[in-house]
Each structure stands twice: as C-alpha cells, then as structure tokens.
Design a protein around this nucleic acid. Structure first.
Lengths: 198, 198
DNA sequence: AAAGGTAGTGACTAATTACTCACAAAAGCG
DNA sequence: CGCTTTTGTGAGTAATTAGTCACTACCTTT
C-alpha cells in the first residue's frame, strides 16, 4: 500500500524506472505484472489503470529509453566530429553501465515476432542512432579527418556493432562494470580503421 | 501420429532441428512444448520421454550449435592467419543466414538469470570463439601481417562485436539475407584497423 | 514368431499469469 | 469544508502451459 498516491504521469514514470531496475537482475521475459506491482508497493490492478496492457508497459520503457538516450547523444560536445563520436560512444557505454536492464529489455523486444510495438521502437531507435553516426562520419570525411576511402555505411555498422557486442559480452559475463575500461581501446582501434591521424 | 518411430537419438536430433526451425519465425521465449510437438507430428508427452524438462531441450540446442559451429571454424582453411580469420567470419555469417533461429535462441539464453545451463553454454561457446580469434591474431602479429601495435584483446572484442552487431541488426530488420553483402566490406574495414597490407 | 524393451499416446493436473471490476480512499478544487 | 475526480484495492477469472503417467503399439532380437 502506497503511502501517497501518485499522479498518473508520475506513476507511469515510476513504473518505467521500476521495470528497468527489475530487468537488471531478471530476464525481462520472466518479469510479471505482479512482480512489478510488488516492487512498487502497489497492487497488480493499479498497473492496469495506467497501462492498457502489459505491452504498453514495454512500449513506455522503450519510449523513455529512446528519448533519454537520443537526448544525451544530442547534448554531446566536442570540437571535431571524431571527438563527438568518441563522446557519443562513451555516453552510450555509461548509459548502459548505469542502466544494465536497458540492453536486456532492448534485446528482449528485438526478439518479438512480426511488427510488435516494442520492436518497432527499437528499430526506430537504431535508425536514429545510425543516422547520427553516419552524419558525424560524413562530416569527418568532408573535413579530411578520416581517410577518403572509408566505407561509411560499413563504419556505421561497425560502430553500432561495437556497442552491441560489448553489451552482449557484458551480459554473457553478467558483469557490466568492465565495459568502460575496454571501450576506450576499442574506439582507438575503430579510429585506426578510419585512418584518423594521431 | 508419427509414421515411423524414431530412435531416442534420432528423436532428440529431430527435436533440435525443429526448435531451430521454429525459432526462425517465433520468439524463442514463446515457443511452447506443444508447438514443438505439433511441428514434429508427435504428442507433447513424447518430448518428455527424451528430455527431462524444457530446459534440457534448450541445452541440447545450444550443444548442437556449439559443436557444429566450432567444427566449421576448425575446418576453415587459408594460407595466412588473416585469410583464415576472413574465412571464419564468412563461415559464421553463412551459418547464421542458413539458421536464423540460432542467434535468436542464443540471445534468448543469454537473457537467463544467474548461471542457467543455457547461459553457461553460450558463455563457453563465446569463450572458445574468442580464443580462436585471439590465436589467429597473435599468429598474424608474429608473422608481421598486422601492425605491431595492434591491441589484440580489443581486436578480438571487435571481431565478435561485428558478428553480434550484424546479427542484431538483421533481427531488428527481420531480414538476414543482406548480411553476406555487408560482411565483406565490414571485414575490410576491420583489416584497415589492424594495418593489414593490401 | 514370441517376447521384451522402447517410443509414443492422450487425458489429466497444478501452477502461473494477464487482465477485470465493483468498491474505497485519497487529492485537489471551488 | 464538501464535492468531484482520480488513484488504488482486493478478490476474482479464464486461459495457457510444463510436466505426469498408465496404457498402447511398434520394432528388434533371439
């Protein structure tokens, strides 16, 4: 029983936060509405006052993730596009380390069949992400900061792959704390591939 | 009702194949024992004669995957270690394209809590994979085929990340057919990072 | 061909889980 | 304060699903 009632907006936000917290230690596919409610000190029924169904909860989580992550990307600063790319990479890693539940949920949504809502969100997020990376790479090439010959789509795929691979390897090891240490060296290697001057 | 009874071994093998087939189009977390049985023209009860529980089915799938994939890696040929690395990459992509259910199952197992059987298998597979990549990179460096300065652990992480990222992006797009086309260009970029002479 | 072991059946169960709804109580507004 | 709106309760329910088991039918071996 909640000491204080929350407004609908606040309750929804709290739900998203709770779900992400739970996902840090639990397989998202195994998270039940009962578990979420219990964690929030609320009954199960209360959840369905704010979300039409369980899917809507996942959709809200994905929404929050996309909004927050993209906002942080857009807040990134740096003199050269390469510096901004590096900052973006670090920002993303930091986000994942502080919210380990997020990649788990993301991967879980990706598993859904057909065109499920959650999957569409992930797709949109990845597309927006890719676009930002591509733009920075294009800018870098225009400024001759990277080799003229760089295959930009391939480089964008590799950039995304670095983050995703790192996240997967962290999940496999059940340890996200080592990510920041590896990430710098990984980005250096990426720069070598682009022919960035040092 | 099955036209012919199968031996226990054959039935287990058929089950693994069926599950991988189902996972190509269905979220592994949503695959039920009833579905598996139906697909095999067998009753649900029959499955539990060959597997102690559902977990055991996933474990068998992971076993098959690890064995098959590693065997293909070890069968790879090429004059230089770099050529072998490229062949390994292509082999993996080819495997994923012909068995799209496999990465989905793998990602699903990775989601499990704690030290679930399936997760341990994935972990072992990834470790064995990483070891092979590391060995080839070390060999390449010894033969001066790649820059002396290459950060081998980072390069191994990047190699795994390329495959995993590619698989994830294919899952997001629900389209595995474009993978081979991208993979060659991706590997070229990887070589640039290593400083491979062309 | 008879026997014995093995694969498969089919009907069952116990547990879980998303979702509902009539009612209660808190919040906020004039 | 008194009234309305909105949030939360608690006790459901219907559906799904992994796993069981006594029995049957097939296959192989001698």
């Amino acid at each position: 029983m909640p000491r204080t009632k929350l407004s609908a907006d606040a309750r929804r936000a709290a739900t998203v936060e709770t779900v992400i917290g739970l996902a840090a230690a639990t397989n998202p596919a195994d998270i039940t509405t009962a578990q979420i409610a219990a964690q929030m000190d609320v009954t199960q029924g209360a959840l369905f006052r704010h979300f039409a169904d369980k899917q809507a909860i996942w959709a809200a989580v994905m929404d929050w993730t996309a909004t927050t992550l993209l906002a942080r990307f857009d807040a990134v600063t740096g003199v050269t596009p390469i510096e901004r790319l590096r900052a973006m990479f670090a920002t993303h890693i930091d986000f994942v380390v502080t919210h380990p539940g997020v990649p788990r949920i993301l991967f879980g949504e990706l598993q859904r069949d057909g065109d499920a809502l959650g999957k569409m969100s992930v797709r949109a997020l990845m597309a927006a992400y890719r676009e930002r990376v591509t733009n920075l790479l294009t800018e870098a090439k225009a400024q001759s900061l990277i080799a003229e010959t760089v295959d930009i789509p391939a480089a964008a795929t590799m950039f995304l792959g670095m983050v995703q691979g790192l996240a997967m390897q962290a999940m496999a090891a059940s340890d996200f704390t080592t990510m920041p240490a590896v990430s710098g060296r990984l980005f250096d290697l990426f720069c070598d591939g682009l022919g960035v001057a040092k």
